[in-house]
């Protein structure tokens, strides 16, 4: 830290500077941020007054500011609502399944891809596997509905040619979660593997050489060297994945859900949408969103802290 000598020969420490000293010094930086912060202020903060309808009974004719206060009524209703509790449960179950099956998938994919020695082929596989990430669920939804259709969908036509009964995957409660989890893996396996592939490329080639000299088989190399080196990244990713367990993929479920599977498919975001926009219970819906967001924020703050502690890696 450079120090300056004041007129009286006293050393001016940062303590003595006016509070805006740094602001003045970095006014360019602050100025630069202005448009971005302004945009966030206008489009994110200004509408936040709307959160108060969680504590009011929203009456359309009166508007948000005039509707009567009801305190925590909607939050109490929330925990008495079987539909809410069911949606809460479904969210956790689907996220849990996605964690168990969807989390390891890109790791396995990355590790196996690393074993491919033909570079051109490896690149091709990578390119193809990222593609689904860029297609919206509005499109993918339509695609899967057609693909899984019991009458014209190729999956069921294949089942039929094998002499099996067609299954209506999207309307069968016992199948719906399987469909959600597997289409989720299908969409994200390539994209989520990027982080692991990068970490693998950073592994020192000498490690493998040493392994070979020690007589490690290829499987042993994969297991001890590759996976071993990936462990820190895996830990971090796992912490954040756990931190996101209450978040569900609205677009995916919304575009795939049919009414017969609501009992297992209705998650917090779709339920909040339905009860708010379709059934006009905005206050209830807002209370639900608020509840979810608070938990979500707490989880991610916790995950961030844990990650920083373990690995000095954080989102911010």
């Amino acid at each position: 830290m450079r120090q300056r000598i004041g007129a009286a020969g006293r050393i001016i420490t940062p303590r003595d500077r006016p509070w805006y000293y740094n602001h003045k010094k970095h006014k360019n930086l602050l100025l630069m941020m202005l448009p971005g912060l302004l945009s966030l202020f206008v489009f994110s903060y200004l509408p936040m007054y709307g959160m108060q309808i969680a504590f009011r009974d929203f009456i359309f004719k009166l508007g948000i500011w005039q509707s009567p206060w009801v305190g925590l009524k909607h939050f109490r209703d929330l925990f008495e609502s079987a539909h809410f509790l069911n949606a809460f449960k479904n969210t956790l179950v689907i996220s849990g399944l996605q964690l168990v099956f969807g989390f390891p998938a890109p790791i396995i994919f990355a590790v196996l891809l690393n074993e491919i020695r033909v570079l051109k082929f490896k690149k091709l596989v990578q390119t193809i596997s990222y593609l689904p990430h860029f297609i919206s669920w509005a499109v993918l939804g339509g695609m899967f509905i057609q693909l899984l259709s019991p009458s014209v969908g190729p999956v069921n036509l294949l089942l039929k040619t094998m002499g099996m009964q067609p299954i209506y995957f999207l309307a069968e409660p016992s199948w719906f979660r399987t469909v959600i989890v597997s289409t989720h893996i299908w969409q994200t396996i390539g994209w989520n593997s990027i982080v692991y592939i990068a970490a693998i490329t950073n592994i020192d080639a000498e490690l493998y050489e040493a392994g070979k000299i020690d007589g490690a088989t290829r499987f042993q190399q994969i297991f001890y060297i590759t996976l071993g080196a990936l462990m820190p990244v895996i830990t971090i990713m796992l912490i954040f994945a756990v931190g996101k367990i209450i978040n569900d993929n609205f677009d995916q479920i919304f575009n795939l859900m049919t009414s017969p599977v609501e009992s297992v498919g209705e998650v917090l975001s779709t339920y909040s949408y339905k009860i708010g926009l379709v059934k006009m219970q905005y206050s209830f819906s807002t209370a639900m969103g608020l509840f979810k967001n608070v938990i979500s924020l707490l989880l991610i703050l916790f995950a961030n802290r844990v990650a920083k502690k373990i690995n000095d890696y954080g989102l911010w």
């Binding site: 509905i145 259709s149 019991p150 009458s151 009964q165 067609p166 209506y168 999207l170 309307a171 069968e172 049919t258």
Partner: peptide, 19 residues
């Protein structure tokens, strides 16, 4: 025996009959 899931599949009607 498939009557439990029905003749209708999604928006498509009378699938069992047509097939």
């Amino acid at each position: 025996p498939e009557f439990v899931t029905g003749e209708k599949v999604g928006a498509q009607m009378a699938v069992s009959f047509i097939n």
